[in-house]
């Protein structure tokens, strides 16, 4: 119970998110209507992705300080899950955009920022694969991931200033900015963020454990 309470919490929060997210009364806003429920399933993906990238950077820094491989495992698996969340976020967003804006891809700063972020982290994976030595791979990819994150953060703040976003709540579009986000929406939105992020952490820790077992097995085979 001590160690896995948060997994139960994740299940409960996600069950609540799905049930309440689909059933609660939502405010009728022009254009959005019922699709405002995407807030719980699409917008939360980005929050989850950013949180997990932060965790990954944290472990990257820790790896550089100590040089221990277990931090590298955590860093890479959190990045992997963040990429997964990013891909899910971008594809749900594209489906939503097709029906709301009439196109899968528009020149929207948020879309572009997320696409660039994904490009960065795909490049990170390619970089990892091109290095063979385990320790060197861990160190160099940690350096790149911190560097890329440092370049990614200003991007999120700059791009929206260049052109107005089509996203709800931006540029006079109806939606959930600080003022008209309904308090009812918040009661699902915040738990949803926590729930999805916990699910991401769960996926990552599972993969980390798998990675460690694999390494143990390899060591065992080598030392036979």
């Amino acid at each position: 119970m001590k160690t896995y309470w948060w997994k139960i919490l994740a299940i409960l929060l996600l069950a609540y998110t799905i049930v309440a997210g689909l059933l609660i009364e939502v405010p009728r806003l022009p254009i959005l209507n019922e699709t405002i429920r995407a807030l719980f399933f699409h917008v939360t993906m980005w929050f989850g992705m950013l949180l997990m990238l932060m965790v990954s950077v944290y472990y990257g820094v820790k790896h550089l300080r100590t040089g221990e491989l277990r931090y590298d495992d955590l860093a890479v698996e959190f990045t992997n899950t963040a990429i997964l969340f990013g891909v899910v976020g971008i594809s749900t967003g594209m489906i939503w955009a097709k029906f709301t804006w009439g196109d899968y891809w528009t020149n929207d700063p948020k879309l572009n920022a997320s696409a660039i972020g994904l490009l960065m982290y795909f490049a990170y994976l390619v970089l990892r694969n091109s290095l063979t030595d385990v320790y060197q791979r861990a160190k160099i990819s940690a350096v790149y991931s911190i560097f890329a994150f440092a370049a990614f953060i200003p991007l999120i703040f700059i791009l929206p200033r260049l052109t107005d976003s089509l996203h709800p709540g931006n540029g006079g579009n109806p939606g959930f900015n600080a003022y008209d986000m309904d308090s009812k929406l918040r009661t699902v939105f915040y738990p949803a963020i926590i729930g999805w992020t916990l699910l991401g952490a769960w996926i990552s820790t599972l993969r980390v454990r798998y990675r460690r077992l694999e390494r143990k097995l390899e060591d065992h085979l080598i030392n036979q």
């Binding site: 660039i116 972020g117 490009l119 960065m120 795909f122 490049a123 390619v126 970089l127 091109s130 790149y144 560097f147 890329a148 370049a151 990614f152 200003p154 991007l155 700059i158 791009l159 260049l162």
Partner: peptide, 15 residues
Amino acid sequence: LMAILSFPVLIPILL
């Protein structure tokens, strides 16, 4: 590698 690693990092500056 040089190209794929640098382009996303350069985009904010370029823009």
